[in-house]
Design a protein around this nucleic acid. Structure first.
Lengths: 154, 154
DNA sequence: GGCAATTATTTCAAGCTTGAAGTTTTATAA
DNA sequence: TTATAAAACTTCAAGCTTGAAATAATTGCC
């Protein structure tokens, strides 16, 4: 996946783009993961869950989190388990539908997240420093629409 | 990581770009992983290792693979173990330096990889279908240089 | 030569990830 | 009502991933 095509031909340009995209995101992701561990003793998946919850003060269902973060249900269960045991998140059973539970940041979780998010944003700014703000906007636009072609089928 | 910034300010455009980049690569990666499993009963990491070896008929050291694929040494050990047990790869101890071993695709591994790689390329072409070949080349160029700023520091 | 540092690799624990199977609760419908 | 299906989660096995510690072989220096 990270190795590229050596020959030329139809479709090679898209393959090359995919290789670059993957290498770029893996490199940045690895660096962010390392800094999250070193500076805040946390992980990327936990940060992702907290980020989602931070935007929804009213809370989110497990399935909301799963859908929003593009990961499986069982995956979210484990991550939320750990966040609960760290006191950053609560799971509240609901009266209306007792299959579901509402997940929310605790006050401590909210403070903790705000601090991490600030560092995270400046790290991203640093790591993508060679991309101008203008170029960043153009790239974002290009990436915005690529999925419509095939996602959501079945 | 997959959640985005809601406010505006300096650095927000790069953060937004990073979110898009990550969502795009995660989505494509998930789809490719699923197809590799369903169609060829293999995984992305194994495909990556085979792709690297396919380009080096003379073989690669474990540390070469690790460096090239941007993953840890211990990681490569496990993946190569599984490929060896599937008969797709061999580990040959060297006379010169007995700490190292040369990893090579077997003949079967080479054939197997060629078949998978063809499917893989057409999948990527499909999944990135909304990006024109021309746009693909431009995006690739933009992604090519972003690392030079900070990688290799320390 | 002999010994310390370096290099290549493996092992291991902890955590992430998926997909499948299982549990509990709610909705549907005969 | 009462089966049956559907929905929301959890559990589990297998595999991926890292970073740290352990092994083994080589290199460099006295």
């Amino acid at each position: 996946m990270v190795a590229g095509p050596t020959s030329t031909g139809p479709g090679k340009d898209r393959l090359r783009l995919w290789i670059r995209l993957l290498r770029a995101s893996r490199t940045i992701e690895a660096e962010l993961r390392e800094r999250l561990k070193k500076e805040f003793d946390t992980t990327l998946p936990r940060f992702d869950v907290m980020a989602a919850l931070y935007r929804s003060p009213e809370g989110m269902l497990m399935s909301d989190l799963s859908r929003f973060l593009l990961v499986s249900n069982g995956n979210v269960t484990g991550i939320v388990d750990r966040l609960v045991s760290e006191g950053l998140v609560t799971r509240a059973r609901r009266n209306g539908d007792r299959r579901t539970s509402m997940v929310r940041l605790t006050e401590e979780g909210s403070k903790t997240f705000a601090a991490i998010a600030a560092a995270h944003e400046s790290w991203v700014g640093e790591l993508l420093g060679t991309v101008s703000e203008d170029e960043a906007r153009r790239l974002t636009g290009m990436l915005k629409s690529f999925r419509s072609n095939w996602e959501g089928r079945e």
